[in-house]
Write a protein that binds this DNA or RNA. Sequence first.
DNA 1: TCCCGAAGTTCGATTTAAATG
DNA 2: GCATTTAAATCGAACTTCGGG
Lengths: 350, 350
Amino acid sequence: MVTIRDVAKESGFSAATVSIVLNNAPLAHYIPATTKARIQKAAKKLHYRPNVIARLLRSKRSHTVGVIVSDVTDPFCIPVLRGIDNVLYPASYLPILVDIHNQRERFERHLEMLLDRHVEGLIMVANWLFVDINLLGDIEKRNIPAAIIGRELKGSISSVMVDNEAGARLALEHLYSLGHRRIAFIRGPTTLADTVPRWRGIQSFARSAKLRIDSRLIMDLPNSLDPNSSFENGYRLTAALLKTRARFTGLTAFDDLSAFGAMRALEKGGVRVPQECSVVGFDDVAPSMLSLPSLTTIRQPLQAMGASAASSVLEGVDAVFEKRLLVSSHRKMLPELVVRESTRPAPRLF
Amino acid sequence: MVTIRDVAKESGFSAATVSIVLNNAPLAHYIPATTKARIQKAAKKLHYRPNVIARLLRSKRSHTVGVIVSDVTDPFCIPVLRGIDNVLYPASYLPILVDIHNQRERFERHLEMLLDRHVEGLIMVANWLFVDINLLGDIEKRNIPAAIIGRELKGSISSVMVDNEAGARLALEHLYSLGHRRIAFIRGPTTLADTVPRWRGIQSFARSAKLRIDSRLIMDLPNSLDPNSSFENGYRLTAALLKTRARFTGLTAFDDLSAFGAMRALEKGGVRVPQECSVVGFDDVAPSMLSLPSLTTIRQPLQAMGASAASSVLEGVDAVFEKRLLVSSHRKMLPELVVRESTRPAPRLF
DNA sequence: TCCCGAAGTTCGATTTAAATG
DNA sequence: GCATTTAAATCGAACTTCGGG
């Protein structure tokens, strides 16, 4: 391991001068070009790499950002992570990713680990979060810039969300404009933050279009710690609904996975999608494009959301560094209707 | 920030004694219980947390393992990461995940970042790796235990792979036993390591079963840096094959994504899956269970593979720490046929 | 000689204060 | 905002050595 002292010896200057030159510190202004050149050459010759740990101990800057994900197996996360990476990488920041499996205990332990490693910022991906996170304490106290994706928190933590209400409205509007009038709904789990605004969007559109919502066509996903459970639950609920012989030509699901479950139940029940029943999802996760029929859905700009969160955290980091005021931002991103194969004009009614 | 000196002051002992007691160092043997208790109490009272960075600077142990992934958007990765996490977390090791987007430049830069941060071990997930990695140099030189998933490298780096040949044999055997005789094949890209052994498995089974392979039914995925491209390419290739009016009742795809592409082309071409044509994939990624029809495929024990790689790296870390010899392991895991809805007994021939 | 505890050095860089031309 | 360079203190913990009872 070659240290700064080795470079000092090689170049004939002191360690202090080497440090000043290589870091281009303010004092480097006073140092003549010849000295600089000799130091640079010595460093290159010895393949000197500064010890990040030693530097961090002294300077407090780790150039890392902690990323806490509630569950990586949720396909929702992947594009978000890409978005984060796309912002952090050019800025030479390293994301440190931890997966809390939706467990409170893991959340606390991982948060500690991240703080112990002096992350300069924190991003939380709360896509499917049931654990109650009153983390405000630790984080705000330490003055660490933080952002959360998929939730809004009071306090100094920035947030990036999709406009759930608008998205749900888009979904229903799409079915309505295709002529569907008898529409079934799979709502989200009660403890999930997205559930309420999405349903509000549904109701708001229904009211404005004078569409009657039949309460017998409303299903609710149960609470679960596993984001992937909504596939199976979507299947079960829809299968049960079919058994009641209730009639409908369209179905709006809480998310893409429950939409897949619903499609499967419909097909098994002899109802063809989209010929006899249209299905709309929410999220636009990767499998939506692959499925047969491919899924019409409401796209969340996941990559952009990740990038936005990362940007505001980096801004916060700069602010802290320059001792400026930390202002939190709360962005609401626009969802987008993606029409694929799972929706069609309403049939006569089956 | 409360330091060890604060605890020393609070307890009335010196920093050295505090360090010895709190780390339960060998010398702690000589220290009376009363002293220990007073120090423990002081530490608790002040909420003392040792500074990981300072400790690391001195002790060289970072309790982190670098995880290099060729592309996180590949659904293949997720269960692997889970497996890694499941081993690292209980051992109090933190994985530091980097995504190289299949780019050589990113690989090099990220590897440097990880080494700079003194990771104690390295795991590479080479699911879809086209960049040439002659990393042996840096890694072996530094004596860092490493493991690679999905590839075999000569040298001291451990590897965990699925038995590709056996897997391909299983796939073909399944179709054969269902009565299929005219079978189409989507082979992998030439630069991917899995391609050759899988094709060898196909040929080996064909030979032993005296099954004729029609070369007009063989398709090859083009080289691409994007793991998700095989969906579209599977679609294109299969659509083109259908245009030739060649006949077949079964199709073996290189991976699940190309199988999805093939299924879509078949359906669009008016060939129903599985009634008129059976399709088998490879990998068993998450969407395989969701699709309609769900995909019969060869499962790679991804989570177990991740866990295995993590275990051998941790073993290596222990070995290095105790100055024992570093032995590399090369594990080959057994694939498993998962029968779902996309395969059926052969029809009369369409 | 045996315990117990403290003083001081080390890890590798950053940074301040000061010395010198 | 002399210009140029450096010795020494610092970051926080770990470890080695040494002295007193």
